[in-house]
């Protein structure tokens, strides 16, 4: 279990680095899928199989399919790759990377010097039954709010995503 956790965490970190430093959009997308699936594996190793299954189905399945379709519709080819390579100069990425590294150092120092003593493992897994009992018990209002959020996102996406045929009409903003 420990080995699975550390190995999949390493894969997740490397794949995420591949995403942010990649130049080809399709390759970066595939790295992102690998990263999401290895985070799902860390969930399984930590003892949260319901969350891991959801990560695979919703994140790596549904959301990534959206990304793949959009990349296919945009038709990003070799030109986009060359453009990315031209933009990725050390002058561009050095400053933000240093800032993110300082933030990471502060976070890691806070974690190392903090008094976190919990150890994960041996406590059994958290099954879907317990999560479902909580979701439709004390957290019911949050579930309804999430449903409304998803409905709003659906309406927005279908409004924004249609072909803009009224673009040229005076005042007809799509």
């Amino acid at each position: 279990m420990e080995l699975a956790f550390y190995a999949s965490a390493l894969v997740a970190l490397l794949a995420s680095l591949g995403v942010v430093t990649g130049t080809n959009p399709v390759h970066a997308l595939l790295y992102l899928i690998v990263s999401l699936i290895s985070v799902a594996l860390t969930f399984f190793a930590l003892g949260a199989p319901f969350a891991g299954a959801l990560q695979v189905i919703v994140y790596a399945g549904a959301i990534m399919v959206l990304f793949v379709f959009v990349v296919m519709m945009l038709n990003l080819g070799r030109d986009a790759s060359a453009q990315e390579r031209a933009w990725l100069k050390p002058r561009t990425w050095a400053g933000p990377s240093v800032m993110a590294a300082v933030l990471l150092l502060v976070l890691l120092a806070a974690l190392v010097r903090g008094d976190v003593t919990q150890v994960i493992g041996g406590g059994g897994t958290i099954e879907a039954k317990e999560v479902g009992g909580l979701l439709f018990g004390p957290w019911l209002l949050v579930v309804e709010l999430a449903a409304m959020l998803l409905l709003a996102a659906l309406v927005t996406a279908s409004h924004l995503g249609r072909e803009a045929e009224t673009d040229r009409a005076p005042g007809g903003e799509s």
Binding site: F5, E84, V119
Partner: peptide, 28 residues
């Protein structure tokens, strides 16, 4: 035996920092 909680949080922090750096320096 067992994974210390800090290690899990460290992985989360590292992933967050990588994402933040990418968010700042990518233009696409």
């Amino acid at each position: 035996n067992g994974i210390p909680m800090e290690h899990g949080l460290m992985v989360a922090a590292a992933l967050f920092a990588i994402g933040l750096a990418g968010l700042m320096f990518r233009r696409n």
